[in-house]
Each structure stands twice: as C-alpha cells, then as structure tokens.
Amino acid sequence: MARELDEVDRGILYLLQREARSTTAQEISDTVGVSPSTVRNRIDQLEADGIIEGYHPEIDYEAASLPLRVLFICTAPAKRRTELAKEAMEVQGVIDMREMMTGRRNIHIEVVGTSTSDITRITDAIHALGLEIESSELVRQRQAQPFNHFHFSGADTGEEAEDSS
C-alpha cells in the first residue's frame, strides 16, 4: 500500500535524485526546512517503506572500455513476459530492462559490450530465452534527470529568477 508523501518527503526525494552521493543531510535540511536528524529519519523511513529502492552510480560505459551500447526491443508472450524479463537480466552484458504493460514490443533490454562478438553472444542468449527481437538500436548517448513530479517548490532548478524591477 502506497503512503502519502508530504512536502518534506517530496523535497528529500527530489534532492536525492539530483545528486544522492554528495548531498548531505544538512544541505537537504537547509532546503526543505527541517533538521538534519529529521532528514535522516525520513530517508530511513522512505527506504523501509520501499520508496527509495537503492542508490546507483551513473557509469560511462565507453570510458569503462564497453564502447558498444545496444537497445533491444523484444516481444515476449504475455503469460511469460515477467518471467522472461527476469531471466534476461541474468544475461551477462544486460544493464537495464523495462517491462511494458501490454502489446508487442513489451520488453526493452539495454546491453553493453566490448565488441560485435559480445553483442552477438548477448543476442543469441536473448533469443535462447524465447524472446523475439523486433529491433536493435545502437545507443549513442543516454541522459537522465530527476523528474520533479513531486512538485517540490523549494528546489533550486538552476534557473535565475527574473528581476521585477
């Protein structure tokens, strides 16, 4: 059962999405208007409630000698979709999987590799699971940002306020 988030929770989540590693409880408290100990307690509760599921580094795979990044758009039979999606995550080289709710093209798998032989091995493994690859796209770049769906009004967005004088 989901719980209602208040403005403090939404602010904490937004700021952690922006930069969890280097944002301190003090910095969050200064922004959301509660004490650092309240911030730490709220983070602990958000983790316990399963709202914060983990903290993950952003990796430049090309800099890590994995220059090929491919997105496979696959179709799985509806009754086996969840099972096959989990199995796909076990294939060496798979870094991301998205399971879609309905229709064809219902599993998107992102992989990295060092060479075309790596990508071929991954392709064969995906086929062996019983997934039909509808298309494969070579990924040039991925950008992500925290979506301010929490409508946290106190967040510094980096935009300058207009001078009304």
Score class of each variant (00 low, 15 high):
residue 1 M to Q: 05
residue 7 E to P: 05
residue 13 L to R: 02
residue 17 Q to M: 15
residue 20 A to C: 08
residue 21 R to F: 05
residue 21 R to T: 10
residue 26 Q to L: 15
residue 30 D to L: 09
residue 32 V to E: 00
residue 35 S to H: 00
residue 43 I to L: 01
residue 43 I to S: 01
residue 44 D to P: 01
residue 44 D to E: 14
residue 50 G to H: 09
residue 55 Y to N: 07
residue 57 P to N: 03
residue 57 P to F: 00
residue 60 D to C: 07
residue 71 L to V: 07
residue 73 I to Q: 14
residue 73 I to K: 13
residue 76 A to T: 09
residue 79 K to C: 05
residue 79 K to R: 12
residue 79 K to W: 03
residue 81 R to N: 05
residue 83 E to C: 00
residue 85 A to T: 06
residue 90 E to I: 00
residue 91 V to G: 02
residue 92 Q to N: 13
residue 94 V to D: 02
residue 95 I to N: 01
residue 97 M to W: 01
residue 97 M to V: 06
residue 98 R to D: 11
residue 100 M to E: 15
residue 100 M to F: 13
residue 100 M to K: 15
residue 103 G to D: 11
residue 108 H to S: 03
residue 113 G to P: 06
residue 113 G to Y: 07
residue 114 T to D: 14
residue 115 S to F: 01
residue 116 T to L: 07
residue 118 D to K: 05
residue 119 I to D: 06
residue 119 I to K: 04
residue 124 D to N: 10
residue 125 A to H: 06
residue 128 A to T: 04
residue 130 G to M: 02
residue 130 G to N: 01
residue 130 G to D: 08
residue 131 L to G: 07
residue 131 L to K: 04
residue 151 H to S: 12
residue 152 F to E: 12
residue 152 F to S: 08
residue 153 S to Y: 04
residue 154 G to H: 00
residue 156 D to Y: 11
residue 157 T to W: 13
residue 158 G to W: 15
residue 159 E to G: 01
residue 159 E to K: 09
residue 161 A to R: 07
residue 162 E to S: 09
residue 164 S to H: 07
residue 165 S to C: 06
